[in-house]
Computed example of a mutant assay.
Amino acid sequence: MNRVRWAHLALGLAVLLTGCSGFWDKPSGGGGGGGGNASGVFYVLNQTTQQVVGFAFASGSTTPKAVTGGSASLGVIPYAMAIAPGGGFLYVSTGGGIFAYSIASSGALTLLNNSQAISQDLPTSMAVDGTGTWLIESIGGSGILNAIPISASTGILDTARTVQTAQLPNTFLNGIAASPANQGTPYIFVAMGTGGTEILPFTANSTGNPFGTLSNIKVLKSGGGATAIAVDPTNRLLYVGETVAVSGTQTGGLRVFTISSTHIAEVSGSPYATAGAGPSAIVPLTNYVYVANKTVTGAGTTSNITGFPIVSTGGVYSLGAVINTINAGTNTVGLAQENTGTYLLAVNAGGSPDLSTYTYDTTTPGKLVAGATASTGTDPTRPNAIVAVP
């Protein structure tokens, strides 16, 4: 038995841990079955220690603890994670292929598909479409976007359908985002660095290729790149983080677009300065949006997170003034909101710390307040992704 298979069979022996409780602006869920809806549970992908680690906040505690049975030793370098919109399945891309896990209501993970990879692809970015029936993935440098058919009820490969592909116009890959289910016209969006943002209409119930005709949002300025991407929980707005998007010392910007069945239109006031030079992750909520800057000019290794309120006047959307900007760790690469709405979470590839948690100010809506920090394993772990159960 090879190292990858043995490491996955060792899943049940992994780290001990606990439960959770909650708060406010909760993102909406979607399709995708399984145990699902584990309260407050989130997962961190550690590249150096080659493991997935599940966490939650025990009742009455403000410090995240590992979830019993929620961790998996992978045995090879991991690249990316994606979670089904219903919270029932977790997908992990590794040097041995893509593996699927079911998620119990406790947050415990069970390796599926007889401990075999559901695909031999090695994607560096993944997302599950809003219906939970397609795993969208791509390998950085390939320029190919794949849609792998998966079962919303079992989480594994749907053998009645075949893998479908779309050829991207650029080989850079910084992220994939999918529209939520049952929320207007569905799209897949791809951040492609200097190649801008690719827009692909997506018909999930198609018996053939679900990808529609591609179109592109060009970067604002020469030398800039689309480095982070996210979709509003109700499919109202598309968010794109770009470098070299605004003037000044901190040139990172958050571009905001309204989503409709006929076009993607940039809102008045976009781009919005993010208080950093390198947008790296975005968390969209119903009333707020938060963007992490991996790079902040003149701040050494310190990253930060900036929050904005979402404003609607007569059905026309924009972002309001910055709520606050708060320091993160070193090289912040991922953000998530756990599903009780109590905590915003950040992982820092450079450590210092591995995991940062934030609560929300009780008097200033949406304002982030620094909370507990934690190691995500035996340091150095180099966490490179975080996902929360919807």
Rank of each mutant, 00 (worst) to 15 (best):
P64D: 08
A72R: 03
G88H: 05
G70H: 00
V67D: 12
A72V: 14
A80H: 01
S61W: 08
G87M: 01
V76Y: 10
L90Y: 02
P64W: 00
S71N: 01
G75T: 08
S93N: 09
S71L: 06
P78N: 08
M81C: 07
G86F: 03
P64I: 06
V92W: 11
P85A: 05
G75S: 09
S61R: 05
S59G: 10
G75N: 05
G75H: 11
G70Y: 00
P85W: 09
M81W: 06
Y91E: 02
M81K: 12
T68V: 12
M81T: 13
G86N: 07
I77G: 14
A82E: 01
S61Y: 09
P78A: 02
Y91V: 03
V92E: 01
S93E: 05
Y79H: 11
G87S: 05
S61H: 05
S93W: 06
F57T: 07
A66F: 08
V76C: 06
L74N: 02
A58W: 11
S73R: 13
G69S: 03
A72F: 09
A84Y: 11
V76H: 10
M81D: 01
M81V: 07
P85M: 04
L90N: 00
P64H: 10
A66M: 13
V67N: 03
V92G: 08
T63Q: 13
G86Y: 11
F57W: 11
S93D: 10
A72G: 15
G88Y: 02
A66D: 11
F57Q: 07
K65M: 15
F57M: 11
P64K: 07
A84W: 08
F57R: 04
I77E: 11
G60A: 11
T62V: 14
S93P: 12
S71I: 05
L74W: 04
I83P: 07
T68F: 11
A82W: 00
Y79A: 07
K65E: 15
S93H: 00
F57L: 07
M81Q: 10
T63E: 12
P85L: 06
F57D: 09
G69R: 03
S59R: 15
M81S: 09
P78V: 00
I83G: 01
L74H: 03
L90H: 01
G70A: 05
G70V: 09
P78G: 06
V67S: 05
A80E: 00
A80Y: 00
L74M: 00
Y91S: 00
G88K: 00
S73C: 10
G75L: 05
G70T: 02
I83E: 04
S73H: 10
A80C: 03
F57K: 01
A58D: 14
Y91A: 01
V67K: 09
S59P: 15
Y91I: 01
I83D: 03
G86V: 03
I77N: 14
A82L: 07
L90F: 06
S93F: 06
V76R: 11
P85S: 07
A84S: 15
I83F: 03
K65W: 13
G87V: 01
G70E: 02
G88S: 03
S61E: 14
Y79W: 08
V92F: 04
T68R: 14
F89Q: 05
A66E: 13
A84H: 09
